[in-house]
Computed example of a mutant assay.
Amino acid sequence: MSRGRIARWMLEETGADYDVVRVDWTAKDAAFVAVNPMGKVPTIVHDGVVVTECAAICAYLADAFPEARLAPPGGARGAYYRALFFAAGPLEQAVTSRAMGWEIADPAKQGMLGFGDFDRTIDTLETLIAGAGAGWLAADHFTAADLYVGAHLAWGLQFGSIPQRGVFAKFVERVTSREASIRAAAKDDAMLAAA
């Protein structure tokens, strides 16, 4: 039940071999904290490179495994990075702020926030998804941006932190019906059940 599910799904999409290391939330292992001083998951180590933060992990793995076609060609990278980092920044900030009860009504103060306000962020997300030309956010095929935005939407719709909108539900259904998503969820659910 963590952002580690996003990294697992991304790893499944790449087709790469990987090992999973469980982390105890209450007593974090010193070796893990040495790799990620934040003590948070997900954290990956690939060829000696430590990568943390879900959007960074998605972008890194897409580039590290180009045969999976999870990063679009150069001309589509603007839309790709925009979607990845919109979800990592404004969307997550807006959803978290709303969940914590932090509402800033003053438009001048909203300008200090990376997301402005919750409604504008959600409306912008709907515009990004509805405007996706081939049904995908950044290319004519599924990319890491679709995975990352889809994971945020799936979580938010499931727990009510993102409002139900038809375009969101259709997008989530589309991305989570992928074989790699289904495999990743089954592996995570089995690991959770065994805990």
Rank of each mutant, 00 (worst) to 15 (best):
A7V: 05
V50D: 12
Y81V: 09
T96Q: 15
R98Q: 14
A55K: 07
D47Q: 14
G4V: 01
V20C: 10
P90E: 04
Y60V: 04
F32T: 11
V167A: 04
Y80R: 04
W102V: 14
A139H: 05
Y80Q: 07
G39D: 11
A55P: 01
E179M: 13
D140F: 05
H141F: 11
A138K: 05
A105C: 11
V50A: 15
A56N: 06
R82H: 12
V49D: 07
D140K: 04
F85G: 00
G39P: 06
A34M: 11
A105T: 14
A154V: 00
Q93D: 12
A79T: 00
V21T: 13
M191T: 12
E126Q: 12
E179L: 13
Q110F: 14
R5D: 08
A7H: 08
E103V: 10
M112Q: 13
G4Q: 07
H141Y: 12
R183A: 09
M10R: 00
K187G: 07
E92H: 09
A151P: 00
F118P: 00
L113W: 06
A7R: 01
E173V: 03
A83W: 03
I122S: 03
S181N: 09
E53C: 05
E13W: 05
L153N: 00
G131L: 08
A193N: 11
T43Q: 02
E179S: 13
E126G: 08
L11G: 01
G133M: 12
R22V: 07
V41L: 12
A145Q: 01
A27M: 11
T124M: 08
L91R: 03
G4M: 14
Y18V: 12
A186G: 06
A190E: 12
L137R: 02
D19N: 12
E92R: 08
A88W: 00
F65S: 02
E173L: 06
R165W: 10
L70K: 00
Q93E: 14
M191L: 15
G39L: 10
L11Y: 07
A195L: 14
T52V: 14
D117S: 07
E179A: 15
Q164L: 06
W25R: 13
F86D: 03
F168T: 00
E13C: 05
Y18E: 08
P66R: 12
E12R: 04
A94E: 03
W9H: 03
E13V: 04
F159A: 00
R178D: 03
V23G: 01
Y18Q: 11
F115D: 00
Y80P: 03
G15T: 06
F85Q: 06
G74A: 15
T127C: 01
I57H: 00
A64P: 06
I44W: 01
L128R: 04
V45I: 15
